[in-house]
Design a protein around this nucleic acid. Sequence first.
DNA 1: CGACAACCTTCTGA
DNA 2: ATCAGAAGGTTGT
Length: 214
Amino acid sequence: PVECLFQFLCSSNNNIARIEKMVWTLAGYGERLGEVGGFVFHRFPTVERLARVSEQELREAGFGYRAKYVVGTAKELMAKPGGGAKWLALLRDRELLEVIEGLCTLPGVGPKVAACIALFSLDKNQAIPVDTHVWKVATQYMLPELAGKSLTPKLSIVVADAFVAKFGEYAGWAQNVLFIGQLPAKKLVATEVTSETAKPTKRKRATKMVEIQA
DNA sequence: CGACAACCTTCTGA
DNA sequence: ATCAGAAGGTTGT
């Protein structure tokens, strides 16, 4: 849940390529695990470690306005009884609406990000992250009367209820399939790449999945 | 309660 | 080449 929370904190009004880059930057603050094929891997940092990172430092790393979300949320979590990780883990035993409500008290966490955390890390299979893509799917195929309106927290609940009514117990995962379907068409291919972190005289090579325009 | 602008940065399409 | 628009939204007005 900690890792999931901070990853989706980076996702607001952002694109996947930059989100991935930002997540790797955050990971860099965690314990170094080792190196594989020229790529260095880290354990995701603790809340305590993230709380000691400065907003300016993250801004310089290209986080933009999300820098203060990361630092602010880390500090809020540290103030929770038992520490943030414990507080997050306990949410798993609560009802979905309580989980959403609790997560939304953190800076940078709104209904969509809260739903992502609930679905992907807290076993809430009926949580529906209503983002721009899901909103398009919903207004185009399920709730055409809402087309043209702006997405409010109230309407995100209407959309979520519609998904649960249509797809049932695992509606959140159905959402994920439809989300992928709305992404620009690309395909993945395994490609031999050269690590840019290796020394020029001694470049290492590794296989990496890269996106190619369809 | 709903609409709307502002917010960082990067990439894409026209 | 240049530039508005969009990107897995949230916050303040």
